[in-house]
Write a protein that binds this DNA or RNA. Structure first.
Lengths: 221, 221
DNA sequence: AAAATCCAGATTTTCGACAAAATCGCCTTG
DNA sequence: CAAGGCGATTTTGTCGAAAATCTGGATTTT
């Protein structure tokens, strides 16, 4: 039954897997994405792969000049700055909408996601069955919970792709266990500001939090 | 030479043409997009069409459930509200960035685009060689000029697709010549607010302008 | 009669081989 | 050393067919 779960199309699976490989750095920036190679690597035909790369191009993970094939999108300070300004804009809007809806579920979801994040950090620190991927999943879930109740499908979509695009940079600065304390502290402070009841404080804390990726990967001169 | 300009791929051409047909209403909301039919309609094979539909799905012009094929995205008040809130957010941000850069070129571009728009309206009114498509092109150029110098590739991309998505609704309210006067007046007032030198005034005028599509297609209760 | 099941035809998705067009690398030439 | 030519490679698109899935209606069951 769980043999070849084709409930999703291969093209959809390819999109997810390639995003993961780009974000995790397995596919390096500017790396050539030759269909022939990918066919082996992902074990599928050319059609779904072409479709996947095509979609990834409009999502911004891949570049594609007319008859020059596909490449992993390059990384640069300018790009991270663009990602960050867009994230600040999107999450500010989404957070305000989540707050003014005074949806009970919102606070529940945020606290639950924070708790999961806290537990994952703890398990990672004590070395009991939790890897970087688990932490990354919990982190994304927390940030998604913050905007989840904004009510706008487009804001949610933007949040998702921008998060992944930022994650590709954030990975560069989160490589040691020693950063774990600081990592959790930042999110604890963010949670406090979010639940404090003052919208301006919440928004400010969130946008500053998003700036952290930028300022730690490319420190101010 | 101008026989079959292959400088662009067929898939790219297909994306543009299908967007045009969706925005102009030739492809109605929720209409089934069968590849077999489109092959005839656009005179190309299945591969570039699949690729185009796939990309249009991530852009939001087309929907696509797993093994149920492609459809033109449906229209609804909720959708236009979502489009509008995203436009207000994006254009506010892009306008502020264009303004604070105090780029000489920005004002030049905006005024030039406005002049073109004005001339097109005039030619349309006097019936001398200008059709709805010309007006629409000039209108899009004007709105694009307003955000053109924001410096953010992502904001520009969002502006472009959101504009087209809004245009599908705006078309519903612009069907008579009698609306032309009001149309131009709105844009004249907007131009004045943009060039007035006060950022808050400019942003307010622009966001209210964007609201017009929403309030005229779905009047407040 | 309403609900569940089943079946055949149509559609979507994927595959693989091939052809046309464009690009790339390398070589020669001026 | 720059410019141009040429073959090999790669990308893009075509075509036909196979595998998986959906659709709609008929049949059976409750």
């Amino acid at each position: 039954m769980a043999d070849t779960p084709t409930e999703d199309t291969m093209a959809n699976v390819a999109v997810q897997r390639i995003i993961d490989d780009i974000v995790s750095g397995q596919l390096e920036p500017c790396a050539k994405l030759r269909i022939e190679s990918l066919k082996e690597q992902y074990g599928m035909g050319a059609s779904p792969l072409r479709e996947a790369l095509s979609r990834l191009t409009t999502l911004g993970f891949v570049t594609n000049e007319s008859h020059r094939g596909f490449r992993v999108a390059p990384m640069s300070q300018a790009d991270l700055e663009d990602i960050t300004l867009n994230r600040r804009m999107v999450e500010r809007e989404a957070l305000l909408r989540s707050l003014t809806r005074d949806d009970d579920e919102w606070e529940v979801g945020v606290v639950a996601a924070y708790t999961r994040l806290e537990r994952t950090v703890e398990r990672l620190r004590t070395g009991q069955g939790a890897d970087g991927a688990d932490l990354e999943r919990a982190h994304k879930q927390f940030h998604t919970a913050i905007v989840a109740h904004c009510g706008s499908p487009r804001l949610l979509g933007l949040h998702d792709t921008l998060y992944d695009q930022a994650q590709r940079y954030r990975r560069l600065m989160m490589r040691g266990i020693q950063d774990l304390d600081e990592f959790l502290d930042h999110h604890t402070a963010l949670l406090k500001a979010l639940l404090g009841g003052d919208a301006d404080t919440a928004v400010h804390a969130l946008t500053e939090h998003l700036n952290l990726t930028l300022t730690s990967v490319y420190p101010k001169p």
